[in-house]
């Protein structure tokens, strides 16, 4: 073996090692046995509250669904983004078209780790980066509630993404950068209401997924938490919802809570676009939850 051959082989080995390292680093990581052991028996009644707080129906019910139609989780909603078009799947109780054959652990891995039952990454259009902050008990309750929902036949079409986003494994890299189950903000001396609001907004409510601008890697820029920014879905801007002049600083807690229930701003304009479906979810929550969200939104740092 001459020197050049040896050098080439060494290079190849190095590249191979880097490849293996990258492969290992990007491997989908599920909850471990000890974590799954903390998954309690769920309660469907409590789970309904988690369902509305988590906004599942906003993407997984048919577009524009109201009333009981919001419980038919057929999927099909298309999110057109710079990465391509994401299509929300059927998550009804249908055993083959939906998720009727899932265990509670499957749901926990999907929501808290973004990993499917067959061990693949979900794309973060499914907002598990927020859901990762949810409590095990809430996931168990949500599972129990979802078991009571109807089976809906039919599969939504798959995502239509642009290269290189078609490489699902790459999501592992994104998760290494952006999946963090800790709270976004440290709010010292927060009372129980603000703490509940923080949990709802940063976790199940996944408000930051639209209302916080993203950096070039597609992760949330948490230094600009809830400051609004360009819409991921083409033209238009998502409003700043921090207590600043550019945001909703002039809104009282009462007005924020009323908006979350009725969709009417203090000026009695009404919410439109994607927010209309969000309101239909939040309107189903107990009043104290909307008040908690309002209290949190008044307690966070104002952003220009």
């Amino acid at each position: 073996m001459n020197r050049a051959t040896r050098f080439s082989l060494a290079l190849l080995a190095l590249a191979g090692a880097a490849g293996v390292a990258a492969w290992v680093m990007t491997a989908p990581a599920t909850l471990d046995a000890a974590e799954l052991a903390t998954l309690p028996q769920g309660d469907a009644e409590r789970g309904e509250r988690v369902f509305w707080a988590s906004g599942c129906a906003s993407c997984h019910a048919r577009e524009g669904a109201t009333g009981d139609d919001m419980l038919e989780l057929a999927g099909g909603l298309e999110l057109e983004t710079d990465f391509g078009t994401f299509v929300a799947p059927n998550i009804s109780m249908h055993p083959t078209d939906g998720i009727g054959d899932w265990s509670a652990a499957d749901l926990a891995n999907a929501m808290l780790r973004g990993v499917s039952p067959d061990g693949r990454h979900y794309y973060p259009a499914f907002p598990y980066a927020s859901y990762a902050r949810m409590e095990m008990g809430d996931v168990a309750d949500l599972y129990a509630f979802m078991r009571t929902l109807p089976e809906v036949e039919g599969r939504a079409s798959g995502n239509a993404l642009a290269f290189p986003y078609t490489i699902r494994r790459g999501v592992g890299l994104w998760k290494a950068m952006h999946l963090d189950e800790g709270p976004v903000l440290a709010l010292p001396d927060e009372d129980d209401t603000v703490a509940r609001g923080q949990y709802l907004v940063e976790g199940p409510g996944h408000c930051g997924e639209c209302h916080t601008p993203r950096d070039f890697t597609g992760g949330l820029d948490t230094s600009r938490w809830l400051a609004g920014g360009p819409s991921m879905e083409g033209p238009g801007r998502i409003p700043n919802i921090t207590p600043s002049a550019d945001g909703i600083g002039s809104w009282s807690e009462f007005e924020i809570a009323a908006y979350l229930e009725s969709g009417f701003t203090p000026d009695f304009d009404s919410a439109g676009g994607r927010m209309a479906a969000v309101i239909r979810n939040l309107a189903r929550l107990p009043e104290e939850d909307r008040q908690a969200i309002a209290a949190y939104l008044k307690a966070i740092p104002a952003q220009p």
Binding site: T66, S231, A271, R274, A276
Partner: peptide, 16 residues
């Protein structure tokens, strides 16, 4: 009545 405001703005009015 009020429910129709949001229903219409959802699809038929652009975001600002």
């Amino acid at each position: 009545i009020a429910a129709q405001c949001g229903a219409c703005h959802e699809r038929f009015r652009t975001q600002q």
